[in-house]
Every structure is written in C-alpha cells, then in structure tokens.
Amino acid sequence: MIEVRELTKNYGPHKAVDRLSFSVKKGEVVGFLGPNGAGKTTTMKIITGFMPPSAGSVTVAGFDVFEDPIEVKKRIGYLPETPPVYGEMTVESYLKFVARLKGVEKSKLSAQVERAIEKTDLGSVRKRMIQNLSKGYRQRVGISQALVSEPEVLILDEPTVGLDPRQVAEVRKLIKDLAGHHTIILSTHILPEVQATCERIIIINRGRIAAEDSLDGLSRRMSGSARVHVRVVDMKDSVVGDLRSTPGVQGVVARGGGVIEIDTDGSKGITPKLAERVVTAGCGLLELREERINLEDVFLKLTTSEENQNKGATL
C-alpha cells in the first residue's frame, strides 16, 4: 500500500530523514516510534504530499506522491500534530467542509459526516463552535476530519497528545477498530501506545530506521523473555530440531556463520539446558550469550548507540 524507498530530506545542511526505506501492507497498523526530532513528522509530511523529498520516492496505492499528488491525497486522511480546525466553525459544518474538500460525493456526504461523528463520539458537541471546545475534543475533531472521507490510508501524527487517560484509551480502541479497513501509520514517542495499537513497529532515530519488528517480537521482549545467542563451530541440522523441542523454547533461527538465535520464555534454568543440548550434539560450542531486554531498553539502546556512532563519525 505504501512504499518508501531511499527517502532523504535535508533542511539546509541538516539531514532530517536519511535514506529511509520501508513498506506498509494493506490493512496494517504501523507505529512510528522515535525521540523528538527523529524525523517522524517529516516522513509523514512527505508521504501525505505536503512537501517533496530531497531524494528517494514514495508511492501510495501505486501512485507516486510527486507525479500524482492529487490521486495520493484523495486516498489519505492526515492528522497533523496540531489539529487543523477552524475555530469559528461548528464541528458539523467543519466536517462537511473537509468532506467536500476531499471530494466526497454529494449523495454520500451527510452519511459519511454522521459516521465520522459517531466513530469519534462527537455527537454531543456537533453544533458547538470548535474554538469553544477543550483540547481533547479538538483532537477528536482532528481525528474525525482524517476519517471523514473514508480514506484507504490514515496518517496520524501523535494522535493521543493532550487527551486525558480515558480519552487516550478510547482513541487507542478507535484505532484498533479502524485497523483492517484502513492502512494506518501513526507516530508517537510514548512506548505503551505502540504496544496498545500497532502490529508492527518502526523505530527511527536521527532520520534512520533503528529497528523494525512485529508487535509479537516486541511484546516477547517486553514480557521479560530472553533471547539466547549461540555460536558453534560445526552447524548440524539435527541440533536445530533438538533445540526447538526443548520445553520453554519459542523459536529457533539458524543464521549464517554458525549463529543460532533462540527465543525462550525466560524461565529459570533454560539457558544451561540449551547449552547442554548444543554440547551433546557435538557442534563445538564457541559462544553462548543471554539477552534480557524490554522495549524501553530496546528503544534507549537503539537511539543512544546510534547517537554515539554519529558522534564518533564526526570526531
């Protein structure tokens, strides 16, 4: 649905996004995670056709963002960091305006406005002027605005900022409900948010992808599970099956160079048991290392080590 290839954006000498490549499948919910200034908003603005990249290409539903911007924009609902609302309009008239602007047909207009109001639970304030609404309601109007044209792709830039905990939960639920019908990219710097809503996570830092993983992969790490890295001299096929059948092992991946990665549930005593299996198989154990990490660690490690690398490069 969305293909981003070698995307680069420079602001003068500063590289906001540096050769970013990823793709999002139809119906997927992808979380963009990164510290402030990592290039999340810039990437999103480029996908929406708001501004052109310095290099690289983006296609949405097969249309290139810079060759067919109108076709792409028809298919995207975008919520910027600040909800783009007119204070002097009522919620209902504003949503009608956005629907018309996005080219919704007259016959479907009021039905789609109704649906957007219903989904974001704005029924009680529909006749109120937006300038008199609280920040949380305005944010919801912003989300509603992105939904009103029923776009295939939704791009939400920090959708839960400024909401109270109950509203945050509601918005997260809404995003989950929308998954499947829409392809969603959302950005945030709040870790649990990603966990609550996304199927796949892209962590970016300093304009580059620091990590990409599925929610399963991440939640396994989060639940305190551990990954064991094993390096052997002589890789035997039987050892992989052997390890896989060990109780407590969730997955075994044999990589090149005699490296085996074993995902475990982190139960006590599993690592020695694995070591024993490798040794009895006669592979010649060279290295065995246990990694116990959670998402915070992943995030911090990925974002700070990159920084150090960059510092090293400039020195």
């Binding site: 708001f50 924009k73 600040t82 783009p84 609302v85 007119y86 204070g87 602007l101």
Partner: peptide, 14 residues
Amino acid sequence: RQRTFDLLLTAPVT
C-alpha cells in the same frame, strides 16, 4: 495561524 493551511495543502486540491 490555525494550522489549517496544512489541511488545504494535504487535501486533493492544487
């Protein structure tokens, strides 16, 4: 000022 310019620029209009 209201940041609605972003809305116009990301809408399917030239």
